[in-house]
Write a protein that binds this DNA or RNA. Structure first.
Lengths: 212, 212
DNA sequence: GAAACCTTGTGCTACACTTCACAAAATCCT
DNA sequence: AGGATTTTGTGAAGTGTAGCACAAGGTTTC
């Protein structure tokens, strides 16, 4: 076993995909799965799945494969999904609303505990059951719920300021939808979702396919 | 120069970030930038930027750096952003609407030419200036506009069916927001945006920070 | 105009990740 | 019961990516 070395980040990013696929299998009533079968569903090689899992232990049976439910439980435990994580969302435009209303967030171990916006006309409005709040309440809500996770869905011009506030208030990991790279301390995790950048990487390949 | 080898995909994915940063610099009135300065803005090493660009040519001046406007033009040309790309969006829930209304899409070389949904009660409704259409019109709109790019924002249960229809209709690159891995032919590009998976990779690290 | 300075482009090295391939262990089949 | 079959976990090999470090070429300064 390789427990001595910390698993690389690429491995950590794949674990949620494994977990999701296992959930689908469970819903389908499948009880056992091989790395081969699992891999075909998510376009990952069997060897990679086995190697990834080997960072955390031995979960399979030779000749058989993996017990779907058990492996799922293991991965969820590894990811810390044994309890719900409080999350605050800053920026309640169309995107922020889509996030706040998305079921997948609420049902997969993430509980949105606060919605914030700088627009005074929005304050107090309800999105589902949650009211939109003023930035002045950020610190209070974050410490009350001990939230460490935040989503930024404000315009690029405000994202850095918002990030600074969040970190000041105790946030330690940020999912940033704003099209800008945030400057943050080393002990804060930041991930980006940037659909336009993704689309632009696709236009690169499409350009070449057509003989451009 | 290394033009003989095709640039790796990681490099292609970074190009849009360089482009965006250069646009911001241009807005700020900066005319010249070194790989060092550019790198600090987007948390990439100077060497990596230079190496990435070297796949496509020599755009800088020794002792000086890069002309912001020229380099931006070059990168946009490489990415194929010299014209607007028609895009269809399938699934007009909260997320699809957020995408359709997002300015960044329309202003950065992407033009949404069709919105589609399976819900009969939505058909005909306008999102901005675009009407929501029935799937029966997918093929027509895609060939009329020669669209090759699509965004999938439907529930996971329908995503594969939608992908099949899109590919059948001529789509060659898909940005998929549905939490499922799509099975597609080798000549179709698929990229994923999966906020829940990203959040789950973050909970992994947060779990460990607290001495878990 | 020459010395000091700056920054690119790139060969080379180092590191990281993926895949291969096989012993070990479990089941299936007759 | 034992041989055939399946599939895991993992060292070792292979591949791909990032960073170093420096020659080359340009600018600034006096």
């Amino acid at each position: 076993m390789e427990r001595a070395e910390a698993p690389p980040d690429v491995v950590i990013r794949r674990l949620p995909l494994y977990a999701r696929s296992l959930r689908y299998l469970l819903d389908e009533g499948v009880h056992s799965v091989s790395s081969q079968e699992l891999g075909e569903r998510i376009n990952v090689t069997a060897a990679q799945i086995r190697k990834d899992l080997s960072y955390f232990g031995e979960f399979g049976k030779q000749g058989i494969g993996y017990d779907v439910e058990k492996l799922l439980k293991h991965i969820e435990h590894i990811l810390g999904l044994t309890h719900h994580w409080p999350v605050v969302v800053v920026g309640v435009g169309y995107l922020g609303q889509a996030i706040a209303r998305y079921d997948g967030f609420q049902t997969q171990g993430l509980r949105i505990v606060g919605l914030f916006d700088s627009d005074p006309t929005k304050i107090g409005q309800l999105v589902g059951t949650l009211p939109i709040m003023d930035y002045s309440r950020l610190h209070g809500v974050i410490s009350e719920h001990q939230a460490r996770l935040a989503v930024i869905a404000v315009p690029a011009t405000h994202a850095q300021t918002v990030a600074d506030m969040l970190i000041e208030a105790g946030i330690r990991a940020i999912l940033n939808y704003a099209p800008i790279v945030l400057q943050t301390p080393d002990d804060v995790w930041v991930r980006y979702i940037d659909p336009v950048a993704v689309m632009h990487s696709l236009t690169y390949y499409l350009t070449r396919e057509q003989g451009g």
